Amino acid sequence: MNLIYAALAFLMALVFGFVGVTRVGSWLIERRNPPIGEFADIDGARIHYVHVPAPANAELPPIVFIHGASANLRDQMLPLRPLLEGRAEMLFFDRPGHGWSGRGTNNENPSAQANTIAALMDHLGIKKAVIVGHSFGGVVTSAFGREHPDKTLGLVFLAPATHPWPGGATAWYYDLTTMPVLGWLFSETLTYPAGTLQMADATTCVFSPNKVPDNYLSSVSIPLVLRPTAFRANATDVAGLYRYALAT
């Protein structure tokens, strides 16, 4: 019996140790990657965004950029803002639960996130825009076009995730993270240390066969996704994508 108690005590100490490592790691990530934009309360979700106004003689219509899984507004803003600033009004934002945006209570699928984007556009006085979606942002872009045609000037898809794929499989850790209790425990203990060790290799795989841009991970603040709440939001998005694509 004493051995059982000792094993349980060791297990609990290990869990609390990993929780502590994750909390400290998340704090360091946030210190190194502070918000760079403004915030708006959109239907209970605190959304972080960068709004770039257009000059009076803008040659292009307003453009709204929707980033993909595991990312945040910097992923599109850093390469594209320098090319378009002074030519168009631009809106970059962290999707609900990603980067510095709160998840809120009603952003669990692409349609709900499209509604949040439409409300953010209303908040900023953007009546219509070209919507640009990358990767997972593609399915949100598609939902936006269907549900808010009055706000849509055009849709641009960059390597979009919009259709069902054979088998519908996703990485095991996304499915695990969406499980009740066990998923919460996993995200609060192991995603930060394990994700930190695997992030460089995973990024190389994503960009393959191309080279990962210099300083990509740090400049785009990708480690923000390793915080437990962000990881759970990202896992919910990715794990639910196949079912959503089938249904729509």
Score class of each variant (00 low, 15 high):
3 L>H: 11
4 I>G: 04
7 A>W: 10
9 A>H: 08
13 A>H: 08
18 F>Y: 10
18 F>G: 02
20 G>Y: 01
21 V>L: 06
24 V>Q: 02
25 G>Y: 01
25 G>M: 03
26 S>D: 00
28 L>C: 02
28 L>F: 01
30 E>K: 10
33 N>C: 14
33 N>W: 04
34 P>W: 07
35 P>Y: 08
36 I>F: 02
42 I>M: 02
43 D>R: 08
43 D>E: 15
47 I>L: 15
49 Y>R: 10
49 Y>I: 09
49 Y>V: 12
50 V>F: 04
51 H>N: 05
52 V>K: 07
54 A>V: 12
54 A>D: 08
57 N>L: 09
58 A>N: 06
60 L>I: 08
64 V>C: 00
66 I>E: 09
66 I>K: 07
68 G>D: 12
73 L>Y: 07
76 Q>C: 10
76 Q>M: 15
78 L>M: 13
78 L>W: 05
84 L>P: 05
85 E>I: 11
88 A>R: 11
89 E>W: 03
91 L>R: 11
93 F>T: 01
93 F>C: 09
97 G>E: 08
98 H>A: 14
105 T>L: 09
105 T>R: 10
108 E>I: 01
110 P>K: 01
111 S>H: 02
112 A>N: 05
116 T>R: 02
117 I>K: 00
120 L>H: 04
124 L>G: 08
130 V>Q: 04
131 I>C: 01
132 V>Y: 03
136 F>D: 09
138 G>F: 09
141 T>Q: 06
141 T>D: 05
141 T>K: 06
142 S>A: 15
147 E>V: 03
147 E>Q: 13
149 P>S: 12
149 P>K: 11
152 T>D: 04
156 V>R: 06
157 F>K: 05
157 F>V: 01
158 L>N: 10
159 A>Q: 06
160 P>Y: 06
160 P>D: 11
165 W>N: 07
169 A>G: 08
171 A>H: 13
174 Y>R: 14
175 D>E: 15
180 P>L: 12
180 P>G: 09
181 V>A: 04
185 L>T: 04
187 S>F: 05
190 L>F: 13
190 L>S: 09
194 A>K: 12
199 M>F: 02
205 C>R: 12
206 V>K: 00
207 F>E: 02
212 V>F: 01
214 D>V: 05
216 Y>P: 04
219 S>F: 09
219 S>K: 15
221 S>H: 15
222 I>N: 02
222 I>C: 04
225 V>C: 07
225 V>Y: 02
226 L>C: 07
227 R>G: 00
234 N>E: 10
243 R>A: 15
243 R>H: 13
243 R>F: 05
244 Y>P: 00
247 A>Y: 13
247 A>L: 14
